[in-house]
Amino acid sequence: MSAIIVLGLVLLVLMVLVGGKQGFQSFLSLVLNFGFLFFAIVLMAFHFPPIVVTLIAGVILLALTIFLSGTNDETSRLAFIASVLVLLALVLLIVPVEHWAQVQGFGLEDSDDLEGLSLPIGISFIDIAISTAILSTLGAIAEATMAIASGLDEIKEQHPDIKPNRLFFDGVYVGKQIIGTTLNTLFFGLFGGSLSLFVWFHGLSYSLGDILNDKVFDAEFIIILFSLIGVIITIPITSFVITEQFKNQKQTKS
């Protein structure tokens, strides 16, 4: 059996042991996420517009991640709405910055891997770079919206008569607590994911200026920065969505 399948089975067993039904659902969301991701790539290969495919896939992937991991449906629904808003805001940042930075496709460091491959394939790699950036940020967005939404849920439950405006600042407070560790998840992800590239830079004595202008490094670094900005704007956006909903709920009750 292939190592990937066995590792997957180990993960499945552990998740069910630790999380029971919820653990199984989380595993299912991982499998479905992979399926949709691969399906999206195949659609792009058939010349469907990459950004449109990515946006549709992105909303589906957010829904899968949030609804299959959450316990409380109402919280998940609000988290989902907030995450879609964050996604749209990020897209407005990603599209112009990717056109500006021009980090699409491959760099000089990729030359060995590209041997024997035909590059002019008639698909705009700028669009592909935008799609990559959008897809890479989805996990971070989903995680942050869920953390804030469930944190605020706790507060709403314990203080049902809290003022809506107060709730907004509580959301920001919850956000402050998660930002430090989320930042680490993202940056260690970058350090780890690009370790061999950094070893390359070191071996060939790249200067800081070389690295800062290097296409391959910039492509990955920019994505981590997009995720980080996504997590930061998640804090006010999620707090705002939940506060507004809470206000409406109060009005209909009274």
């Binding site: 999380g19 919820q22 949030i66 991991s69 996990g139 995680e143």
Partner: peptide, 8 residues
Amino acid sequence: GKSIMGPL
């Protein structure tokens, strides 16, 4: 833990 492990 079990509710945050999936998203992470």
